[in-house]
Design a protein around this nucleic acid. Structure first.
Lengths: 170, 170
DNA sequence: CTTCGACATGTCACGATAGGAACGTCATAA
DNA sequence: TTATGACGTTCCTATCGTGACATGTCGAAG
């Protein structure tokens, strides 16, 4: 049920259409909670049915601008402070590690080296984002930077771990 | 499509029944790729239909022992070495961070402190697992330890990050 | 001999994810 | 004027994940 709260969270910064939210997602939340366009629109519909958001205005091209309601804001705060985050980590990359014995040692090492490289690329990408959004003073930017810092630290240990793991394989 | 490869991976260490796999999952893969019993059984059925595993023996209580086939082993190796891991990270915990501006600063700090505590608990749990499985010499144990090391390092930075983030909030 | 816990599989329903097709509008530049 | 690209929504299909429920067998303890 996190997508619903992601949408509420974005709307808590101001009204937006499904289309707006899609773009916002792409440049902020997509790294911590990916969602597709169809998911967004259907979620907005459900949210409106549930009274957590309302259609604040209808614009050109059938545009519907949604605004968070008081119930929606309350639900968001409740979710943030009182609902325990579910810690289900799923990693395709790490799953493979369990089975590396099924391939040659040099292939296993190559796999880990490749992961280290991919992480490096991702780190560079995050660095460039940091330089880009460093100036924003809105809530999403401020806390987005804190989340980004998480990504940077995570990437760093991933790389160190991959290099360490490669050395473990003989 | 990773559950299918998780099952193939476990079967590559030797034949097992759905029930066996369930237990294996719980004590090895569940931290990187959770799966429920119903998923396992239906996946085994599909795998058998696809010829990637075969029913090697039928035992008491309707037990069906599955074994990986040559096609299955080939598919597993192919997946490990040639399929790019999808890096879709989803974090309920991190998503909330984006919206911490919606609650009081002291609540935001409490949230981060709580996450640090939860991570600490999880780290202790992983340490105890490490002491427990440190002796195993089978493939899954050897590579499981490498995966566990990942978990330990990850947990450590998560905690450091949460503590750092808490300080950022004024 | 009964009961209980471990063994063992299967099914159903619901919601979440993924990805794309279909449809239409508006502004603007060639 | 017309083509194009950005805007904008809706619907559809398929697979995955979650949790509960139903159904039974076997061995061992009491």
């Amino acid at each position: 049920m996190s997508l619903r709260h992601a949408v509420l969270g974005l709307l808590s910064e101001g009204p937006a259409s499904g289309y707006d939210l899609m773009k916002l997602f792409d440049l902020s939340l997509s790294n911590v909670w990916p969602a597709t366009q169809s998911q967004l629109y259907s979620e907005l519909g459900k949210l409106a049915d549930a009274g957590l958001v309302s259609v604040a205005a209808e614009g050109a091209r059938g545009r519907k601008e949604y605004a968070i309601t008081e119930e929606g804001a309350a639900e968001l705060r409740h979710w943030i402070t009182e609902v325990e985050p579910v810690r289900t980590m799923r990693s395709d990359m790490l799953l493979r590690v369990f089975f590396l014995a099924q391939v040659d040692p040099q292939e296993a090492r190559a796999y880990l080296r490749r992961q280290a490289e991919l992480v490096t690329k991702h780190l560079e990408h995050m660095e460039s984002i940091r330089n880009f959004v460093d100036s924003g003073q809105d809530n999403l930017s401020v806390y987005g930077r804190i989340a980004l810092e998480y990504g940077l630290r995570l990437g760093t240990v991933q790389r160190e771990w991959a290099e360490w793991a490669e050395e473990q394989i003989r």
